[in-house]
Amino acid sequence: MTVPAIDMNGVWFSYDRTPILEDVTLTLKQGDFLGIIGPNGGGKTTLLKLLLGVLKPDRGTIKILGEAPHDANHRVGYVPQNTDLNITFPISVMEVALMGRLSRSRIGRRYSRKDRSKVEEALKKAGIWEHRHIPIGRLSGGQRQRVFIARALATDPEILFLDEPTASVDPEFEIDLFDFLRELNKQVTIVTITHDVGVISRNVKSVACVNKSLIYHEEGQITAEMIDMAYQCPVDLIAHGIPHRVLPTHTEK
């Protein structure tokens, strides 16, 4: 059996004594496409940061491809939610994407020819190659999102993490993006946070709902009825069940 892409066991995390995540256990096999849903403040982004090694759990263990999160950093790609960061920074699209080729072992060295060709490939894949010389601040939100995706792809990731990749983009790009991710998923494990349950139903293979604790649905668990209900009363999706269950097949531990 291959190593799981993600293996979280009994993970707890709190900020200044406020519990954010409680007893989260999750095993995700390689090649999966996981959508993470849940209310704002429910701990989705915290979960992602734990998986990326930016945050350390209070209790419990996390393994990414069998390694500690921060040791697996050269094997994962990350697309942040906020693409507006440092918008006046004097930097071109190419230079942002090249950051995907950084690594601890090659500090102090120039970017190589291989780095540049990898980035070229990634920028072309993300459909933003023609803008490579433009300062990042002059692009639209959707274009910037493509650059950040290219940056993540330039790493040659085995797992790609995305935090609300469609938060700041137009609906057209959203469809493009998920077509693109589905295609990419043939080679790469994908984990994406989203608030859009519709997106999840059409695209992902498995779903996790995070609100302090985590509930994981493996394969085909979202039905038309569930989506319906989630749209009707998203609060209910948040509360995991009361007064009527949105996600009926939970097996809570």
């Binding site: 990326l52 090694g53 930016v54 921060h70 950093n73 050269h74 994962v76 990350y78 942040p80 960061l85 440092n86 920074f89 930097i91 230079e95 942002v96 090249l98 950051m99 995907g100 950084l102 690594s103 601890r104 072992s105 500090i107 102090g108 120039r110 970017y111 940056r151 790493t155």
Partner: peptide
């Protein structure tokens, strides 16, 4: 290139090691 990464996107710089 490390200074650029840290200055532009500290979190990403940390994640890539």
């Amino acid at each position: 290139k490390e200074f650029i990464a840290m200055s532009y996107d500290e979190e990403f710089a940390f994640i890539v090691g």
